[in-house]
Design a protein around this nucleic acid. Structure first.
Length: 763
DNA sequence: ACAGAGACTTGAGCCAATGTCG
DNA sequence: CGACATTGGCTCAAGTCTCTGT
């Protein structure tokens, strides 16, 4: 997985006279903290909208690669027009886009949405319908003096915006929490540090500090019911004996379990890594004990267990579909009650209600802990968070009990346990992405990114100015923010020794950035998930020089930004826009790019429109460096395609010959291997065949190009996390593309809040 | 200011289910 | 219909960022 990002071209950065950030013409309400963003929960899309998405749409648009040209500067705005016709490299394009004036979005004020009551019923027993209290929403960032929000519709108006049904529902249910509404301050949900449990990793108990005055917003729920979590079944010993020095060895079930974890990973990459094997041996030998026959890993032969495992796999695969179905139903039945929670009376789906099973830790990259035994979690390890008045779920493991029960309405987790691999870390159980909580915060995320539009000009002006600052820290911040903005780098927090050695912007080391004269930088480092970021970019010469000055006198392994960390950068950013942090730039630039690249597609077919959407999506994925590893089958598949291509070409050649002969009244020549004589053909019939073949040829060629092009690019991540779904929804509406062609079922579920946007919506 | 706890978002990979094609 | 390709859902690791106590 090498860097997929071929030379992106520079963003032109001319120092521009500063100006106050153009306050939007008030189309934004988010600065008005009296009018918190409100999450709109929509009724589910109508059933016919939920048909399974069509797959495998052939892409027909003419493909254009992001070309690696560089050095183009001073692109004039007029160039923007040609934009749709790609060959304009991404960054250059962004440059153009960024220069362009942001137009006020026509749909200025987000209307207060309705919260149609959801049906609720937890575990199938209750049946209460309540409306979510209007104020469960978080307060927005403090008002900025700059943006002058247009007066919103009067507040009463807002309230009346809800669909009748929602209003009715709320009335009918006399929710006790109506008054809980407006900013209830949580009085500390107190958790006296209990006197000493063995100072095992401490449990979370921090309270939020209500900040001066108006803050709060910290209460996330008033009532919360759920059934806890489900545990993996206990280990079933298989009794297959591994060999030591060629002789079968007796293992206890615990020892056998861990041996099996290892055995079944034989053909993974992990099994080839020294760290993995060493860590495994370290933990397993402890379990075996000093006096065990097995004294070393070398003589261990796990093959019998591995083979047993393959057999099991085979057995499962060969089950009849009835058996499979039955098993599935049984599983569903056992899990059903864990799948939902009741939040303020609303039934919501729980995300990860299954406790993680034991196994060997599969850290990514060169994680120092890979191969360690991840021990089984028992109920005593679990802390549940649940309403005070809610029944405490029965512990599903006989003879055990929950570790702790909390009633903390300031958080959204339903349960947590400590990560057995890194006990200071937590594993949480949260609601699913389709839930109100997640939807609300998702929407807030995009609104914050949109707000950045109003500030981005001034922010860019400022960092451009600070590139020449005499103050090193300011200069470093300027460069860092430049990189975060232009290259969409992550913030780059410091990491512990016992984690994989990866970096982001603030943690870049000297070795990761090379200067390529005259003004290019080559980045080569491992980022999140140890995915390589490899990219050469032409940058503003001031940035180039600044990097040179930061590198001066430092060693390979030293920090590039020695005066920075993410806190400093984020503190700085907050001074420029309320709530601004490094990650907002990724969201902003991703959404902004999508919005700009989704060009008008009038007059094209739906298939072509979808292809153009995917093209835009791809640009965003490249910007964010969302990669995937090339599938094992890729090469074979490409070969097959090129074979097909060759055949088609050959046939085309024959057809052309046929045509010439047909014109002379001669019959087609026999193809190699054919023996039947052929009849004379009409020239125009042959001509039609030729055209058909040519079309097929182009299609195959395009398919190949596309496939190869996308082999290392993952489109999904940006769709799920970075591109404002309202952009996609609006585009679909405007261009009459069924939304299901763009969002699959789970995305539609996750984005219910975005589905009713107007076709005119722009990011 | 700083370190660490805590909470929440983002991310790639896996695999069974589903779709497509010859 | 079977072989293969693609996808969707899930899993769990790995980030970001906030808040607290000192």
């Amino acid at each position: 997985m090498a860097g997929v990002v071929p030379g992106l071209s520079p963003m032109e950065v001319d120092a521009v006279p500063n100006g106050a950030p153009a306050p939007s013409n008030g189309h934004y309400d988010s600065d008005d903290d009296d009018a918190p963003l409100v999450f709109k929960r929509h009724t589910p899309a109508s059933p016919q909208l939920l048909k399974p998405p069509v797959q495998n749409v052939p892409q027909i648009a003419s493909g254009g690669h992001v070309s690696a040209q560089s050095g183009v500067t001073g692109v004039s705005a007029s160039k923007e027009e040609s934009d749709s016709d790609d060959d304009v490299p991404l960054v250059q394009r962004r440059e153009i886009l960024q220069e362009a004036e942001h137009k006020p979005s026509p749909i200025a004020v987000q209307k207060k949405p309705a919260l149609p009551a959801k049906e609720k019923q937890l575990g199938g027993e209750k049946n209460v319908v309540k409306k979510r209290p209007a104020d469960a929403q978080k307060t927005q960032a403090p008002p900025s003096k700059k943006a002058k929000p247009e007066p919103r519709a009067s507040s009463s108006d807002e309230d009346d915006d809800r669909p009748l049904s929602a209003v009715k529902a709320s009335v009918k249910k006399t929710s006790a929490k109506v008054e809980g509404k407006k900013k209830v301050k949580v009085e500390q949900v107190k958790k006296p540090v209990k006197k000493e449990a063995p100072a095992k990793a401490k449990a979370p108990e921090r309270k939020k500090a209500p900040k001066d005055g108006d803050e709060n917003g910290t209460v996330k729920w008033t009532t919360l019911e759920h059934n806890g979590v489900i545990f993996p079944p206990p280990y079933q010993p298989h009794g297959v004996k591994m060999l030591y020095d060629g002789k079968p060895v007796q293992l206890t079930p615990e020892q056998e379990e861990v041996a099996t974890f290892f055995a079944v990973m034989k053909d993974t990459d992990w099994a080839q890594k020294k760290t993995f094997v060493t860590n495994f041996w370290h933990d397993w030998s402890k379990l075996l004990g000093k006096k065990h026959v097995i004294q070393k890993l070398g003589p261990c032969d796990f093959t019998p267990i591995y083979e047993w495992h393959l057999q099991e796999k085979e057995r499962k695969k060969s089950m009849t579909s009835e058996e499979k179905k039955r098993l599935k139903e049984e599983k569903l039945k056992a899990e059903e009650k864990y799948m939902f929670a009741l939040v303020d009376g609303v039934k919501e789906q729980v995300g990860n209600f299954r406790v993680e099973p034991p196994g060997l830790f599969r850290g990514r990259g060169e994680h120092p802990k890979m191969g360690k035994v991840k021990k089984r979690i028992v109920p005593e390890d679990i802390t549940l968070n649940i309403g005070k008045d809610a029944p405490i779920p029965e512990c599903p493991v006989p003879g055990h009990k929950w570790g702790e029960i909390r009633h903390d309405p300031t958080v959204t987790w339903l349960a947590f346990w400590h990560d057995p691999i890194s006990p200071k870390d937590f594993k949480y159980v949260f609601l699913a992405p389709s839930s109100s909580w997640k939807g609300q915060s998702d929407m807030e995320k995009y609104e914050k990114a949109r707000k950045l539009k109003d500030y981005i000009g001034a922010i860019r002006d400022q960092y451009n100015r600070d590139l020449t600052s005499k103050n090193t820290e300011n200069k470093q911040i300027a460069v860092a923010v430049y990189l975060i903005d232009v290259l969409a780098l992550r913030a780059g927090n410091e990491k512990d020794e016992d984690e994989a050695d990866t970096v982001g912007c603030c943690s870049l080391k000297i070795q990761h950035v090379k200067q390529i004269p005259p003004t290019s930088l080559e980045f080569d480092f491992l980022g999140k998930d140890s995915i390589r970021y490899f990219n050469t970019v032409q940058v503003n010469h001031l940035v180039y020089e600044a990097i040179g000055s930061f590198k001066k006198g430092k060693k390979f392994d030293d920090d590039l930004f020695d005066t920075l960390n993410t806190t400093k950068v984020n503190t700085h950013l907050k001074g420029l826009m309320p709530g601004l942090t490094a990650k907002v730039f990724r969201t902003y630039n991703a959404s902004y790019t999508l919005d700009k690249l989704l060009v008008d597609t009038d007059g094209t077919t739906v298939l072509e429109k979808i292809a153009s959407y995917q093209k835009a999506n791809k640009e965003v994925a490249i910007l964010c460096n969302h990669q995937r590893s090339v599938s094992k089958a890729h090469e074979g598949q490409m070969e097959k395609l090129s074979l097909k291509l060759k055949e088609a070409e050959e046939e085309l050649g024959f057809l052309k010959e046929d045509l010439a002969r047909a014109r002379k009244g001669k019959p087609p020549k026999k193809r190699p291997g054919e023996d039947k004589e052929k009849k004379v053909q009409q020239p125009d019939a042959v001509q039609r065949q030729i055209e058909k073949k040519e079309l097929q040829l182009r299609k195959i060629a395009h398919e190949m190009a596309q496939k190869d092009d996308l082999k290392t690019v993952a489109l999904g991540t940006s769709k799920i996390n970075y591109m404002d779904p309202r952009i996609s929804v609006a585009w679909c509406k405007k261009h009459e593309v069924p939304i299901e062609k763009i969002f699959n079922k789970s995305l539609l579920n996750k984005f219910t809040w975005a589905l009713e946007v107007e076709p005119e919506y722009r990011f």
